[in-house]
Write a protein that binds this DNA or RNA. Structure first.
Lengths: 214, 214
DNA sequence: TACCTAGTTTATCAGATGATAAATAAAACC
DNA sequence: GGTTTTATTTATCATCTGATAAACTAGGTA
C-alpha cells in the first residue's frame, strides 16, 4: 500500500493568505479556550498541521494572535435587538427577559466564548472590563428601569449600584450555568430554557413582593 | 550613607524549616492567585526574598507546590455548621439561608480563594470537580429539600437536576458577586449582605409563587 | 574557639519556547 | 515550458524556565 498517507510525503496543500489566516484564527480560539493563553505556539501549529514559524507569517507575535482571538470573541457580541426586546412594553417583562436570555445565552454560553472570556478576565485584560461596563450600561441598567416599572415604582433617580447588584445576581446566576457546564464540566440539565425561565419568573415575582424594601 | 540597605549585603535571615515552608506556601497562594499557575518560580522566589532553588528544598517540584496550594484552598472549606443551619426548621428558611450565605461568603469570597478556584477549574483539576459534587450533595440538595417544605410540597422523590439547577442560579448568582469583585475588578456595592438578603428573599418568595409549576 | 548541622546561595544544566532567516516548492503568470 | 511569485518548511537563535549539585554560612553545641 504505497499510497497510504503515512508512506507518502505530505502533499503540503497551499492556501491563500486569507484562508490560512482564517484557519489559524479559528483553531487558535479553540486552542486557547482549552489550554489558556500560556498554550504554546508549537502545539497550536501541530493541531493545524502546519509548521510553527508559519504562524508568524500571519501574526507577527503571539500576543498579536491572542489579541485577534480577543477581538473575535468580544466584538459584535452585543446584539442591538436585545435592547429593543427589553424595552418593548407591549409584552410582559417576564416574556421579554425570557426572550432576551434565550438569545443572550445562545450567543455567549458557548465553550470557546465562556473560557476565553474567563481566561482574559483572570489576566486582567482591559477588553474584559470594557465589556462588563457595556453589559451594565446597555443591558442591566435598562432592565433595572423596566424592573422599577414592573414593581410599580416611579423613581426618577439614576439606577443605583444596589439595583444593579440585584439584577446581577440573576444575570450572574444564569451565566453560572455556563460556567458549570464549560468550566467545571459538572452535571447540568440539558434544558437551559426551563431553568432560565423559572429563575427569571421567580426573581421577578419575588422582587415585586419585596419591592417596598428595595 | 553606607548603612543603607542597598549598600549592605543582605543579612540573610535564616528560618526554621517549618517556618520557611509556611512562608513559601502563603506567598505561593497569593502569587498563583494573582498570576495563575503558569507564574514562574523565579518571580515567586523574588517576592519571598529568597533564591529560586530554595523553593525546591521544601517542594520537590513546582507541581508539588501547586498541589499544596490546592489543598490549602480546597480543604476544610465546608463548615459542618452550615448544614445544621440549613436544616434547622425552628427558624424561617429565609433567615437560615441568609445566615448560611453570610458565613459561606465570608469563608470563600476571598481574593485568593476565588481566583485559585477559577484557575484550577479552568485547568480541569480533579479537586475542583470533587468540590462541586460536595457542594451539590452537602449543601444544595439539603437546601432543595427545605425549599420543597417551604413551598408546601410533599414529594418523596430524590431531588432532581432541575431543582438543583434552580438553586444553582441563586448560589451561582451570589458567587458571581465575588467573581465580579475579584476577577473582573468591576464596581460592586460594598455591602454584600444587603444584596444577598434581597436576592435570597426574592428567590424564595418568587419560587413559592411559581412552585406549582416546578 | 572549634566544630557541626542545616538553611541558603551560586553556578549551571537541559529542555522548552517565542521568534528569525534562509531554503524549498506549489501555484500563477507569460 | 520557463520564469516569477509567494506559501511553506527547515534550521537555528536567544532567552526563559524548571530543576540539580556543589559551595557557603548562620547559628547552635561541646
Amino acid at each position: 500500500m504505497s499510497t497510504k498517507e503515512s508512506d507518502v510525503k505530505a502533499p503540503r496543500k497551499r492556501l491563500s493568505a486569507e484562508n490560512r489566516e482564517q484557519k489559524i484564527l479559528e483553531e487558535a480560539i479553540k486552542f486557547f479556550a482549552e489550554k489558556g493563553f500560556s498554550g504554546q505556539t508549537r502545539e497550536l501549529a501541530s493541531r493545524l498541521g502546519i509548521s510553527q514559524p508559519l504562524l508568524y507569517r500571519y501574526f507577527p507575535t503571539k500576543r498579536d494572535l491572542i489579541e485577534n482571538v480577543f477581538e473575535e470573541v468580544y466584538m459584535n457580541r452585543v446584539n442591538p435587538e436585545w435592547l429593543t426586546t427589553i424595552k418593548n412594553r407591549e409584552r410582559s417583562l417576564e416574556d421579554r427577559l425570557i426572550e432576551f436570555y434565550r438569545s443572550y445565552a445562545e450567543a455567549t454560553y458557548r465553550y470557546e466564548w465562556i473560557r476565553v472570556y474567563m481566561f482574559s478576565a483572570l489576566m486582567g485584560e482591559e477588553l474584559n472590563r470594557r465589556y462588563i461596563n457595556l453589559v451594565e450600561k446597555e443591558l442591566l441598567t435598562p432592565i433595572c428601569l423596566e424592573l422599577r416599572a414592573y414593581c410599580g415604582l416611579t423613581r426618577d433617580e439614576p439606577v443605583s449600584q444596589a439595583e444593579l447588584d440585584h439584577i446581577w445576581v440573576l444575570h450572574g446566576g444564569l451565566f453560572y450555568y455556563a460556567i458549570r457546564k464549560h468550566i467545571y464540566h459538572g452535571p447540568v440539565s440539558e434544558d437551559f430554557s426551563t431553568v432560565m425561565s423559572s429563575a427569571v419568573t421567580a426573581m421577578l415575582r419575588g422582587t415585586k413582593v419585596i419591592s417596598g424594601k428595595l
